Simulated scan of single mutants.
Amino acid sequence: MTESILLVEQRGPVRVLTFNRPQQRNALNSALIDTLRAELAAADADEQTSVVILTGSDPAFCAGLDLQELGSGGNTLLKVEDESIPVGHPWVPLSKPIIGAINGAAITGGLELALACDILIASERARFADTHARVGVLPGWGLTSRLPAAVGRGFARRMSLSGNFVDAEEALRAGLVTEVVEHDALMNAALALAETIAGNDQPGVRTLLASYRRAEEHVVDPALQAEKQTSRAWLETFTPDRVADRRADVIGRGRAQNA
């Protein structure tokens, strides 16, 4: 029996979604993107679920888009550009909080998934990098808005233009994550926070979360539209061969930095 590429576990009022392509470092192929979006929608519709935790099967959280599928002409980028998903989002935004439990490397598209969560907790093994510039693909899930909002303009540009990795402690200092814990304590820490949130008045939690989002709209929405326009224009000249040519170099350089 084939094991699921996304594990789903209900822990009381908390639903845990775990990327499960460990041999591929949980890289996002078309099937995983579709499955993730469907399971998040299901969690949002389930009245017994108050909080979602998103994490990965070790050793990585998510290595971003599957470069092998993308380089071979796969339709991963079409999944990124799904017209049914609001501009600048990897999934339809949930009415419930999402906690990202970052257990390892969160790279490029994986970093964008982390940024789309409401709260991030990191294992000491967590690493973050934006390698769009290395691969020759532009962000389309809101990175150019959410990353500077989290870590500041200069630090965000440094990450994006260099492609270098940021470790867990540096991510904490920059404000990208709210807490760093020992690796084996990560899920317990995420569950403890999720259960605290779930123990509050749920209409109040969801209304407050919606209020935070509305308060950000005047800044976030124009930035997401600008990113979309840039990404769409870039895709008009994009060819999968560009990724295929750079794939080995990108992977090797990333492994050297993340060693």
Results as ranks from 00 to 15, higher is better:
Glu216Asp: 13
Glu236Asp: 14
Ala31Ser: 14
Ala126Lys: 01
Val80Ala: 02
Val220Thr: 08
Leu193Thr: 09
Ile99Cys: 11
Asp184Lys: 04
Leu138His: 01
Val180Ile: 04
Leu193Asp: 00
Ala223Gln: 10
Pro86Lys: 13
Met187Lys: 00
Ile102Gln: 01
Met187Cys: 09
Glu217Phe: 13
Val87Met: 05
Gln23Gly: 07
Glu227His: 11
Glu47Thr: 15
Leu113Asp: 05
Ala244Asp: 00
Leu32Ala: 13
Asn164Pro: 05
Leu67Arg: 03
Ser211Val: 14
Leu224Met: 04
Glu83Thr: 07
Gly175Trp: 06
Thr49Tyr: 12
Thr35His: 15
Glu182Phe: 14
Ile98Met: 09
Ser95Trp: 01
Leu208Asn: 06
Ala185Ser: 15
Phe155Gly: 10
Gly136Thr: 07
Leu138Cys: 07
Leu186Tyr: 11
Glu227Gly: 08
Thr239Phe: 06
Leu77Ile: 13
Leu6Gln: 02
Pro13Ile: 12
Arg213Leu: 12
Asn75Phe: 15
Ile85Asn: 01
Thr239Arg: 10
Arg213Lys: 05
Val166Ser: 03
Ala198Trp: 02
Val243Leu: 03
Pro97Asp: 08
Ile5Gly: 01
Ala101Leu: 00
Asn103Ser: 10
Thr131His: 04
Ala223Asp: 00
Glu47Val: 15
Ser145Val: 05
Val151Trp: 05
Asn188Tyr: 11
Ile85Val: 14
Lys79Val: 08
Leu161Tyr: 08
Pro148Leu: 05
Ile98Asn: 03
Asp245Arg: 02
Leu40Ala: 06
Ile119Phe: 13
Thr196Lys: 03
Glu81Arg: 15
Arg173Val: 13
Glu47Leu: 15
Cys117Gln: 01
Gln68Thr: 10
Thr2Leu: 09
Glu169Arg: 12
Gln257Met: 11
Glu182Lys: 14
Pro93His: 07
Leu36Asp: 08
Glu124Trp: 05
Glu216Asn: 05
Leu172His: 07
Ser72His: 13
Ala189Asp: 11
Thr35Lys: 15
Leu17Tyr: 06
Pro22Glu: 03
Arg157Ile: 08
Ala171Thr: 00
Ala185Arg: 15
Val177Pro: 02
Arg21Lys: 08
Cys117Gly: 09
Pro222Ile: 11
Pro97Arg: 00
Ile85Phe: 03
Val219Met: 03
Asn200Pro: 09
Arg173Tyr: 07
Leu208Ala: 15
Ala116Gly: 02
Ala194Lys: 02
Gln23Arg: 11
Val14Lys: 06
Ser30Cys: 15
Glu216Thr: 05
Ile53His: 13
Leu32Glu: 00
Ile197Gly: 00
Leu138Asn: 00
Arg173Lys: 15
Ala150Gln: 12
Ile119Pro: 01
Leu191Arg: 04
Ala38Asp: 09
Arg247His: 04
Leu78Ala: 14
Ser145Thr: 03
Ser84Trp: 00
Gln202Pro: 05
Leu235Tyr: 07
Gln10Leu: 14
Phe165Pro: 03
Gly252Asn: 04
Met159Pro: 00
